[in-house]
Nucleic acid binder design. Sequence first.
DNA 1: TACGATGTCTATATAACGTATACTCGCTCT
DNA 2: AGAGCGAGTATACGTTATATAGACATCGTA
Lengths: 246, 246
Amino acid sequence: MRKSTPGGIDLIWTQPPPPPRQRALGRDEIVTAAIGVADESGLDAMTMKAVAARLGDYTPMALYRYVHNKDGLVDLMLDAAAAEIPLPAQPGPDWREDLRTLAMDSRRMIGRHPWFARLVHTRPPAGPHMMRRLEFMLAVLTRRGATVAAAMTYAALIDRHITGSGLQEAEEARIERRYGLDDSAKLFAALATLHELAAADGGLPHLTGWFAQPSGPTPAEQFTLGLGFLLDGIAGRLSSHAADGV
Amino acid sequence: MRKSTPGGIDLIWTQPPPPPRQRALGRDEIVTAAIGVADESGLDAMTMKAVAARLGDYTPMALYRYVHNKDGLVDLMLDAAAAEIPLPAQPGPDWREDLRTLAMDSRRMIGRHPWFARLVHTRPPAGPHMMRRLEFMLAVLTRRGATVAAAMTYAALIDRHITGSGLQEAEEARIERRYGLDDSAKLFAALATLHELAAADGGLPHLTGWFAQPSGPTPAEQFTLGLGFLLDGIAGRLSSHAADGV
DNA sequence: TACGATGTCTATATAACGTATACTCGCTCT
DNA sequence: AGAGCGAGTATACGTTATATAGACATCGTA
């Protein structure tokens, strides 16, 4: 940054030796920094300024040589995150297991990068890793007799479930964070507010009851449940027109 | 707005008679205006200034008396949109049909208000209409033997599918709009770019093929397909522990 | 060793956003 | 008639992203 000091002659002695120039930033460093900021401080905190600061003594404008846009940076972040999802070289023997583990791994990635679910829908999914992941799903499904068009649909359904879950969990976490995460009393108070609202309506017995004593499967269990529903549905479709052998 | 004219004495004659004061804005008008702006010009165009302008000769600050911040306005918008979803007074005889039409109506609403899917995850779902809608789903499901906790899960799965579809369709529309919606050549060019990207990778045969000749079910068909999968899955769960009569 | 060229980063400026604060002014009620 | 209130305005501030222009170290070449 190194702003000039206005008013007050700055002798050489007062200034420490300037930091080395030509530090040669790069896309990778920038993207990692951006992901770090977004992971730790949330998507709203991921400003160009914050990313530049995390990289050291840089101005926001320094990044523009490498990413020309914030949207560009977002694209790179999304694909970097997608790259974290392990991808088998070839579909395995069990299509269902292939899709299941891919979905679970994707979910885990989103758990590490909650911003992913919010950003993925704002950009065209043209990153190479995103594409390779989709290609894998298509390979798994078409090998089982699905047309590419049908496979695209099934893949979209699964991805919708993954990002939808991620979105919801991330939002719950964000709200908890916003209203004091560490303090479980705060959380209780927030819930109590909702309970009051529901009770005040008068016509919401089930909801009011649930708020009084919230319970249910964990998010992970909900996720696998829904995933199972979708895979079952896909299985039904696959078997119906895949009369040919494996 | 009626800004003072800087530099240049404004005689009374140059100014038309001032518009009637005490116009008494209200939440309803503001929310309708905000929804109108968001529907017509997109979520990004929905600024306080734009909403105020749509209401007539108002400054952005005029709104703050009624909504105290933009998040509050968003909450009101979300609930107003939720209010558009028709809700039977009582669950009908066929739980599946109840959930199906609710889902279809919700989807139709999102079709009218594409911003809904993007906003709904950013705020706690505490609006009265949102709650009543959820209560209805709970009523339908618990009446069939589900616990409230299980019903909450099923409802979440369905809603995830609804908003996920909405998000995806809205995004596709937004991208098309961004790169020239009326011009189908532009759209073709965008698709060609994706095709090139996929082809350049070399290892994406299915995806490349699909880009060369995109096809598949309409979004509406995809939606009902996925919804069917989920309802089937829920049905399986319901029947398993609902040995008691209706 | 001197010197442009190049490439990297900084400084500055702009337009738009949400919104706090302080005000103006007309209506209404006494 | 005059006080008070309530609706809307004006202005200002701190943030964004980003265009534009300039500073300056390093490098290739002489």
